[in-house]
């Protein structure tokens, strides 16, 4: 067993010592082992009536005929899995067997027929809430949107106050431009429309400009030390953190 040139050159650069070593398979089997193992394996399989794959005997070498019979042995086990399970259930637990097809839960009429359409519709309207693995920078975008919503709502209050102020004789042009911009959002529908028009870049910029300790705290509370990549991973790959954030 020799190294291919590419692997050898690479290993030579890393460790000339290891590259000089001949590759030896210490787990090699005694001569003739593979050719005569099939019968032993077959007998072994037949004596194992259960599907438990654990064995108390631990031999170091591959039994005779092991590879020759492996496919057949596995098929046997699969067949047993498929055939014996219901039979056992009928014999030992007839009541359970009679109930196994019963589903006590109901769903609205035509639920499954309509589901793909509904999911697609919701996706098109951006109503689907993603959880788990798809959590990414979009979480922060959503957080920023919510924060934006609160901010705009506050501006609405300011708006009302401003109108009052105007009624009280205060000149409108003394109000800052960004507050004047918010006057167009008269109700929740207008606010939602406004948020929809925000680009992800705008949301990210907003987040970067306004991220505070609350955001950090919310993020930190969702992080467990166990799930963090190893320190070594950060050294090996500068994108480790990005990958982690995208996966969580």
């Amino acid at each position: 067993m020799d190294h291919s040139i590419e692997i050898l050159l690479e290993l030579k650069q890393i460790s000339p010592f290891l590259s000089e070593m001949k590759k030896v398979n210490v787990f090699s089997v005694p001569p003739g082992y593979f050719t005569n193992l099939d019968q032993q394996i077959l007998e072994n399989t037949l004596t194992h009536s259960t599907l438990s794959l654990t064995s108390e005997t631990h031999n170091r070498d591959v039994p005779a005929g092991y590879f020759e019979n492996l496919a057949g042995n596995i098929l046997e086990k699969i067949k047993k899995l498929q055939v014996t399970e219901p039979d056992e259930l009928i014999e030992q637990y007839p009541l359970l067997y009679s109930l196994r097809k019963e589903n006590i839960f109901t769903v609205p009429e035509n639920y499954f027929e309509k589901l793909p359409e509904e999911v697609l519709g919701a996706l098109n309207q951006g109503k689907v809430r993603t959880i788990g693995k798809t959590r990414s920078l979009w979480n922060y975008a959503v957080a920023a949107t919510v924060t934006g919503l609160i901010a705009i709502s506050s501006l609405l209050v300011t708006n009302t106050s401003s109108d009052n102020a105007a009624q009280n004789g205060m000149a409108k042009n003394t109000v800052p431009e960004y507050i004047q911009d918010s006057y167009q959002y008269k109700n929740e529908e207008a606010i939602n429309e406004g948020i929809k028009e925000l680009s992800s870049d705008d949301i990210i910029k907003y987040l970067e400009a306004t991220a505070n300790d609350t955001d950090n705290e919310a993020f930190a509370s969702g992080v467990t030390e166990k799930g963090l990549p190893d320190q070594e991973e950060y050294l090996k790959n500068e994108k480790t953190l990005d990958t982690y954030l995208n996966q969580n």
Binding site: N25, F27, H58, R60, V62, L70, A71, I74, I78, L81
Partner: peptide, 23 residues
């Protein structure tokens, strides 16, 4: 088999893992 065997060392263990894998 050899990929598994190098990881779990013992033949019986390798055999178990291999069979589960093919199932």
């Amino acid at each position: 088999y050899w990929h598994i065997r190098r990881m779990v060392i013992d033949h019986e263990d390798a055999n178990d893992v291999l069979q589960n894998l093919f199932i």
